[in-house]
Every structure is written in C-alpha cells, then in structure tokens.
C-alpha cells in the first residue's frame, strides 16, 4: 500500500507551526540563560573549601540529575502554587523546571572546568594577594570558560530537546502545536515528519559546531591567546 504524501496543508498552517517554534525558542532561551546562571552558582559552590556549601551543591546536582526531566516538570507544575504561592501555568512550570534541570548539568560543567585549571594558577593568584573571590573571578574562571564552551553547546542541544517535555503540560511549543495540527488534519505522518526534520535541521549544525569547537579547544590545550 502506498501512501499519498501531501505536505501542502502544512504550508497553509505554517504560521501555526512557526508560532510553536517561537514558543520553543522562548522557553529554550529563558531556561538556558537562567540555567547557566544557576549552574555557575552551584558549580562554584561545589568547589569551595566549605564542606556545607559543597554538600548543598552536591544534593542539588544529584537530586536533579537522577530524576527524569518529565517528573520534574510535572512536579513543579503542581508544587509551585504551594511552594511560592503563585498561580501555576505550564509556561512557568516549564521555565522553572528546565532552568533547574539545565542548572544541575551545567553546574557539573563549571565544576569540571574549574577543576581543570591547574593548582599553580590558584597558588600564584594567592601569592599576589588576591582574595578567593578574586582568584576565581579574574584568574580561574576566564581560563576555565573556554574549555567549557563545547560542553555548554551540547547542553544547549539537550535543552532544546527537553523543551518538548512542556508539550505534556499542554504548553503550545512546537511538538504540542504539531500534535494539535495532526489531530485536526488527520495527517500525523506529514506533521510529525516535518517536526522531526525541523529539529534535526536546527540541531545537527549546532552539534557539528560543538564537535568543531571541541577539537579546537583540545588542540590548543584549552589555552586561548588573543
């Protein structure tokens, strides 16, 4: 049996799909930027001398990383009104959950990056009288960040994939929009194929860029002079 493919209806519904894609983009941008910020805080926390702070950082990272993203999303959807007393929405729950999700994974990237800076750098910075915060801010982080970039790129890709989880809360991102269209038009094959192609078309070049960056950083030994 051959199936008569017909993508024409999708062109007509293009604006709808585009709207979904924009929502995906928004969710991605917010979760990624706040995830990087949260990750920085917890990543540094995991490297400080204080045992208590390290413990808190570890609990956060382990708790988030060992829980499936979907469960986090649903949990925050129901728990937000109780925890902070705000009216919950799929958008808010997705933003909070995905930010914390990305935060935990990027905390590990920061930690590994910071750990990769050799002890001599810390010692030299201390020898010239810099405080711990200044050692971190001016000596260690700038050197570490370059090595982290490829890993952050991979995180960005994983987060883009994770935004589709928000469709389970009926947030109108790309996949949810596609599901609505597929049901409305009785054409799941074309619709889901299109969504799949869109994701790969965006993420594949990004993935290659990450691989390229990784090689570059590896070649330069993580040291970049300008």
């Amino acid at each position: 049996m051959s199936y008569a493919w017909d993508f024409n209806f999708l062109w007509a519904l293009g604006p709808l799909l585009l709207g979904g894609l924009i929502n995906t983009g928004k969710l991605w941008a917010i979760a990624f930027s706040s995830g990087l910020a949260i990750g920085l805080a917890f990543g540094i926390m995991r490297t400080v001398p204080s045992r208590i702070l390290r413990g808190i950082g570890m609990v956060y990272v382990e708790a988030i990383r060992n829980t499936p993203g979907l469960i986090l999303l649903i949990w925050f959807y129901y728990a937000l009104p109780i925890l902070v007393g705000v009216q919950s929405s799929a958008w808010l729950a997705a933003c909070v959950a995905l930010s914390l999700y990305t935060g935990a994974y990027s905390a590990e990237i920061y930690r590994a990056g910071i750990a990769s800076v050799e002890a001599g750098q810390w010692e030299a910075a201390r020898a010239i009288g810099l405080s711990y915060a200044h050692q971190m801010r001016y000596i260690v982080l700038p050197q570490a960040v370059m090595r982290m970039i490829p890993a952050f790129g991979n995180r960005a890709i994983e987060l883009a994939k994770a935004t589709t989880l928000a469709s389970t809360l009926a947030f109108g991102e790309l996949l949810f929009t596609a599901k609505v269209i597929a049901e409305d038009q009785f054409r799941p094959l074309e619709t889901f194929t299109a969504v799949s192609v869109i994701f790969t078309a965006v993420l594949l070049p990004l993935s290659y860029a990450c691989i390229w960056l990784e090689r570059r950083v590896a070649r330069s030994g993580g040291i970049v002079r300008d």
């Binding site: 589709t164 597929a182 799941p188 094959l189 619709t191 889901f192 790969t200 993935s207």
Partner: peptide, 21 residues
Amino acid sequence: DFFRTSVALVLICWCYFALPV
C-alpha cells in the same frame, strides 16, 4: 546523526501516530 539530534518525544509520537499510517 539523524537519531542523535532527534528528540525522543518527537520520535515516540512519530512511531506511534505516523509509522502505522
């Protein structure tokens, strides 16, 4: 490359809703 950069949930939807068609 295709499956590495695909989204699991999209693949699941595709296999469940589209593949049978």
